[in-house]
Amino acid sequence: MINYGKHIILFFICIFIQVLVFDGINFGGYIDPYFYVFFILVLPMETRKWTLLFTSFLLGLGVDLFSNTIGMHAAAATFMAYMRPKVIQYLSSRRDYDAGMQPLIRDMGFRWFFSYSFILVLLHHITLFFIEVFRFSEFLTTLYRAGISTLATLLVIILTQYLFFYKKKRR
């Protein structure tokens, strides 16, 4: 059973935190954490693929509205959502997961979550940065920027998990 209310609130929190906090922060000139993809990462396992794609599209569009990049985040987020089921399948081919599980460190373990989010966030960032630059002449620079930002985003996402999503397990 999916808790819809919680996810709708998380949707808006992700957009506003991205726009008001993370768009204002930059480490060392060009490191850009795109925290909002957190929402796409943590949607429950049994979310229907259609819902997954469409909410991701809306999420990207929401961020776009504020950052003057109309369509870019939407395209990257949709691509990420499209890849998500494939990555989950690839990573958990031997492992079963229960219906109520979310792809979190709490439920899946650190190593699983790290590879899962690393692949997806990297895909998202590469797509986003290449759409933004829109030319291949700065190929290595763009790749470098995408890679560095991926690490920043991952760091923030993993910290968020330990801060806000870890309580239940201890009981």
């Binding site: 599209f57 369509g71 939407a74 395209a75 949709t78 759409i131």
Partner: peptide
């Protein structure tokens, strides 16, 4: 559906 959404996004861009 994925293609449709991407086409919309690219048109916007």
């Amino acid at each position: 559906f994925f293609l449709l959404l991407e086409v919309i996004a690219v048109l916007l861009i």
